[in-house]
Structure formats: structure tokens, C-alpha cells
Simulated assay, not measured.
Amino acid sequence: MKKKIALSWSGGKDGCMALHKLIGQGHEIACLITTVPIELERTFGHGEKMEAILKQSEALGIPVHFIRCTFKGYTQSFIDSLKDLKNKYQLTSAAFGDLYLDEHRSWGENTADSAGLEALYPLWMKKDEAAQALQDFADSGYKAVIIRTQDNVLDDTWLGHEIDQQLIERMKSTPICPMGEAGEYHTFVYDGPLFKKLIKLQFGERIQMETTTRLELEDLSLIEK
């Protein structure tokens, strides 16, 4: 049965893999949904500029809806927005790109259920399958770069690196989850099979935050393919 889905979207590889798999299964992605702290105007998940997410939305040809919320009211804002989007798009489901953390899945299932939607986890796997998942992404034709690292596990030399075979080999010598499931690193996808346009970008300054370092993306523009 074809499902009509709102996909939780932070701009990185996991959401992109979920998008690709769901479309490959014949489902319709009605919209992307991205949470944004009211006071920052950047994404909750990766701290990315809203402009960058809008460029992805346009490149993919899928509308994005920003959920402006506070940390305290995050869950209720998510539920309320899902209810609105359910009515707007006649949604059947909400999908998430989580891989194996049970607490993340429980949150998504409860949130979707509260909005009257089915929760989908198209990438769900065992923890020891994460290395193969990273390899699958590198082989998929999608292009992504690391834009944020957790300082206690990865230094800033990882920033700006493509998810490619060279990075995978380097990743083997680190103690982290290869997919960064615990937030060890975050990525930004700028091209691939479902992208109707390429996102051209430049690397800006590196910003040291409390526990992470973020690479700014600048001069984003869309290029016809």
C-alpha cells in the first residue's frame, strides 16, 4: 500500500537514505519537516542555516516545513505540526532516519501516534550493521560532507570531508559509531540520484561551540544538472 509521508529532515545522510529507501518502495514523500529553535533560526539537529535546508528542499522538489519550537515545548510543537500537516497533505505516516537507538524510536512512535499517524523507521538496523550502512551511503551516488563534530571524539580535521572510501577507511580507526548515531558527527547532503539540482557551496569559518565544532556553509546556490 502506498503511504503518504512526512519525513523528519535535518539535512544529513541518514534522512537522505530514508528518503531514498521510502521512494524506492513506492511511497510518496509529501513534505520534509525540520525543527528550528525559535531564538536561533538554525536547525535543532545540526545547527544548520535554514537557507541550506531550503536549498535542499528546492533541489529535491519536496516542500519543507519548519517547526519553530523551544527545547521545553519540542515534543508538543512536533505533534501539533504533524496534525496540521496530516490535514494539509492527507498523511498516513511520519518517517524518521534513526538507526538503532531505542529511546529515539520510542519518542518518534509516541509522537506520531499522538498525531494519529504511523511511525516509519526505514533504516532500522542492528548496531553492528552501521559500518555497512556507511559503506552503502558512500556507494549510493549521494554526496555529503561533514559539517559538525563532537569535540571529545573527533577533532576538526574531519570537518569538510566527503563521505567517501577514504573517510570510511579513516573511520575504522576511531571508536565511534561509523554512522555517528550518537551525534559524533553530522553531515550535509548536496547532490545525488534524487536531487534535480546540485547544491554548490563554499566552506566558511569553523565555529567552536560548547562541546562541538561547526563548519559554516556559505554562498549556497543551485546548479542545473
Results as ranks from 00 to 15, higher is better:
residue 92 T to N: 02
residue 92 T to F: 10
residue 92 T to R: 01
residue 93 S to H: 11
residue 93 S to T: 07
residue 93 S to Y: 09
residue 93 S to A: 09
residue 94 A to P: 12
residue 95 A to N: 03
residue 95 A to K: 01
residue 95 A to T: 04
residue 96 F to R: 08
residue 96 F to W: 14
residue 96 F to S: 07
residue 96 F to A: 08
residue 98 D to M: 03
residue 98 D to S: 02
residue 98 D to R: 04
residue 98 D to P: 06
residue 98 D to L: 05
residue 99 L to S: 06
residue 99 L to V: 04
residue 99 L to W: 05
residue 100 Y to E: 14
residue 100 Y to G: 07
residue 100 Y to A: 11
residue 100 Y to M: 08
residue 100 Y to H: 12
residue 100 Y to T: 11
residue 101 L to C: 13
residue 101 L to G: 10
residue 101 L to S: 10
residue 102 D to K: 10
residue 103 E to A: 13
residue 103 E to T: 14
residue 103 E to N: 10
residue 104 H to A: 05
residue 104 H to L: 13
residue 105 R to H: 13
residue 105 R to S: 05
residue 105 R to A: 13
residue 106 S to M: 09
residue 106 S to D: 08
residue 106 S to I: 12
residue 106 S to E: 08
residue 106 S to P: 11
residue 107 W to F: 07
residue 107 W to H: 14
residue 107 W to M: 11
residue 107 W to L: 13
residue 107 W to G: 01
residue 107 W to V: 03
residue 108 G to M: 03
residue 109 E to M: 15
residue 109 E to I: 14
residue 109 E to N: 15
residue 110 N to T: 07
residue 110 N to A: 05
residue 111 T to A: 11
residue 111 T to R: 06
residue 111 T to W: 09
residue 111 T to K: 05
residue 112 A to R: 08
residue 113 D to C: 00
residue 113 D to A: 08
residue 114 S to K: 15
residue 114 S to I: 10
residue 114 S to V: 12
residue 114 S to M: 15
residue 115 A to S: 12
residue 115 A to G: 06
residue 115 A to D: 04
residue 116 G to Q: 03
residue 116 G to C: 07
residue 116 G to L: 04
residue 117 L to V: 05
residue 117 L to W: 04
residue 117 L to M: 11
residue 117 L to N: 06
residue 118 E to D: 09
residue 118 E to G: 04
residue 119 A to N: 04
residue 119 A to I: 05
residue 119 A to S: 10
residue 119 A to K: 06
residue 119 A to R: 06
residue 119 A to T: 08
residue 119 A to M: 00
residue 119 A to H: 09
residue 120 L to G: 00
residue 120 L to N: 00
residue 120 L to S: 02
residue 120 L to I: 00
residue 121 Y to T: 04
residue 121 Y to N: 07
residue 121 Y to P: 02
residue 121 Y to F: 10
residue 122 P to A: 11
residue 122 P to M: 14
residue 122 P to C: 12
residue 123 L to M: 13
residue 123 L to F: 15
residue 125 M to R: 06
residue 125 M to P: 00
residue 125 M to N: 00
